[in-house]
Design a protein around this nucleic acid. Structure first.
Length: 568
DNA sequence: TCTAAGTGCGCG
DNA sequence: AAAGCGCGCACTTAGA
């Protein structure tokens, strides 16, 4: 069934226009409504059949809809798609898209976002009128259609847009977060909260360090001063980082490491963090889709993507609900196997543990070596244990290694690379090119040459990793998008079982609560947990087929059902 | 007093 | 201090 396409944007008089488009993106007709009637209009259209909503910026337009209970099934985010297509190598004729610089405002999503009911308030700075949106959408479709890989690009843009919906929904639903469990952990680790001054356990650790250093006034928070204190006490370290301290045998080392650990918990995820980021037992981070050039998401505020694993004990389902958590085992090497069509690596990956499979094929002796070597291949290691193991990986998996080596070479030469679906790496910058051309000049100094070579290598490692990290991000988007649809199809529970803090759209049904590169958490009423687990597995399989067709690569999940998100 | 850069550490 | 990718945040010091 063909779906309707409706463009949403502001009119010159501050109202909202809904422009229906034909499949060829020709306008069919326009309805004009008051801005505060938008949610009802969207809701009515969603109820009547499949619609793809075209709008400038999901981060600006979708939150107010969700806030009043309106979910949409499909969207097209003009701002995010513009960034993809502007850059895409496969787009030969851009139909003026690259010149439409008013759409280049690829800034972070507006923080918070819940109050942006007025379409005109888009904080990202892209145009917000319906007219501009129609023009840009037609450019985008034309650019995709005339590209070398229209199918892949269309898929990428749809997945990116679905991800934008998910990012807003994750913020709206929030991670179920037990303030009580978090406080309990803080008190057991740090001691009681104190109004002024540090918690007792931190003070104690600091005192122990100062005694061991024989320096009662040693500063522990200023790196240069701490370094001097350590030197005076005979601890001849180059830095104050944990790994280096741990190599020395000195009475100050253990308490100093303990101090750093406690201080980190206190400053990054202590009571102040709780007060700022957790309300009504929900942690609501701001996700930034495609905030990383590879297509990975970033986050802004709350350190959403850096929550220490030890704190996941505070992630607790509401009463009568539970959590389904899942992460993909070795996503990136699996993606590499599929992209390079390396059947040997794919065979090693079949089953649960890809690294064990590499050992079985005789490439290296141990699982630890297999992991080290594989990470080295994807990150571009040249020295150390990892670098030494690479030739053995090259012999066993020549196709996969060729792909990453080629990507590195392209980057070193100043070229661009792209992911499986066609997200293209940034072009080499002006200063980078200057550095390279200065080094190839006849009069170049040795210093110039060294600097140029190093910067070329740096760029090579970036492009080497881009193809793998970026394609993994595409797989994850496909997983999210598919799972989102499956969850929406599960039945609601009755109002007595609702989780109101999850918001009007999600309080009565299973919903995504957290996403981090290759793992997800779903918050679900207890009776749907098994169905959710099945949906999570099916969507992973579906994502693999969507990207890689019949190529024999699987994406096994580590999946758990339980009231907390702790890893079992 | 503000900003930029350095350091260190949390996550994948 | 990282060998080897991508991030965000807290804290500090240096500099305008």
């Amino acid at each position: 069934m063909a779906s309707d396409t409706v463009v949403v944007g502001r009119t010159a008089t501050g109202r909202v226009a809904l422009v229906s488009l034909r499949p060829d993106a020709e306008p069919l007709g326009t309805t004009e409504i008051d801005a505060d009637a938008l949610a009802d209009a969207v809701s009515a259209r969603e109820g009547a059949g499949e619609v793809r909503w075209i709008w400038a910026d999901t981060a600006a337009t979708y939150p107010p809809l969700l806030a009043v209970g309106v979910r949409v099934a499909r969207a097209w985010d003009l701002r995010l798609v513009h960034v993809i297509l502007r850059q895409a190598q496969a787009v030969a004729d851009d139909h003026g898209l690259r010149g439409a610089t008013e759409w280049d405002a690829d800034t972070a999503a507006p923080a918070g976002g819940d109050t942006l009911f007025d379409l005109g308030d888009s904080a990202s700075g892209v145009p917000d009128t319906a007219d501009a949106a129609v023009v840009e959408y037609r450019r985008q479709i034309a650019a995709i259609t005339s590209s070398e890989t229209p199918g892949a690009l269309r898929l990428l843009c749809a997945a990116e847009s679905a991800g934008a919906l998910v990012s807003v929904e994750l913020h709206a639903a929030g991670v179920p977060w037990s303030r009580a469990a978090h406080e309990e952990l803080l008190e057991s680790e740090l001691g009681a909260r104190r109004g002024g001054g540090l918690p007792a356990r931190i003070e104690q650790a600091a005192a122990t360090v100062r005694t061991a250093l024989g320096d009662p006034s040693a500063s522990l928070d200023s790196q240069p001063r701490l370094l001097r204190s350590l030197h005076r006490a005979g601890l001849l370290v180059q830095s104050t980082s944990r790994w280096e301290l741990a190599e020395h045998d000195h009475p100050a080392v253990a308490p100093l490491i303990a101090y750093k650990k406690l201080m980190r918990l206190y400053t990054a995820n202590g009571w102040a963090w709780l007060d700022e980021w957790v309300r009504d037992d929900r942690f609501r981070p701001v996700y930034v889709p495609a905030g990383v050039v590879t297509g990975r998401w970033a986050s802004s505020g709350g350190g959403a993507l850096q929550i220490p694993r030890s704190l996941r004990t505070a992630v607790r389902a509401d009463a009568g609900w539970t959590l389904v958590t899942a992460d993909v085992a070795q996503l990136e090497p699996r993606v590499l196997a599929a992209v390079s069509r390396d059947t040997a690596l794919a065979e090693a990956a079949s089953g649960r543990d890809l690294y064990a499979g590499i050992v079985e094929r005789g490439a290296v002796a141990s699982r630890a070596e297999a992991k080290l070597a594989m990470l080295g291949a994807m990150y571009g290691a040249t020295t150390g244990e990892s670098g030494r193991l690479l030739p053995r990986l090259r012999r066993t998996f020549p196709r996969a290694m060729q792909l990453v080596d080629d990507a590195a070479r392209t980057g070193e030469d100043g070229g661009v690379v792209h992911t499986w679906l066609g997200r293209t790496s940034p072009t080499a910058g002006e200063s980078w090119r200057e550095l390279q051309s200065r080094a190839s000049d006849a009069a170049a100094s040795g210093v110039d040459e060294t600097r140029a070579r190093r910067s070329a290598r740096d760029r090579g490692r970036f492009t080497r990793n881009f193809v793998v990290q970026g394609t993994a991000a595409e797989w994850a988007l496909a997983w999210l998008a598919d799972l989102r649809a499956r969850l929406a199809a599960l039945p609601e529970v009755d109002a007595t079982r609702a989780a109101p803090a999850s918001g009007p759209v999600f309080q009565r049904r299973p919903h995504l609560a957290f996403f981090l590169h290759d793992e997800i958490v779903v918050h679900t009423p207890l009776e749907h947990a098994d169905a959710v687990a099945e949906a999570v597995r099916e969507s992973a399989a579906s994502a693999g087929r969507l990207l890689f067709g019949t190529f024999p690569i699987d994406f096994p999940l580590d999946l758990r059902i339980g009231a907390t998100a702790e890893k079992g």
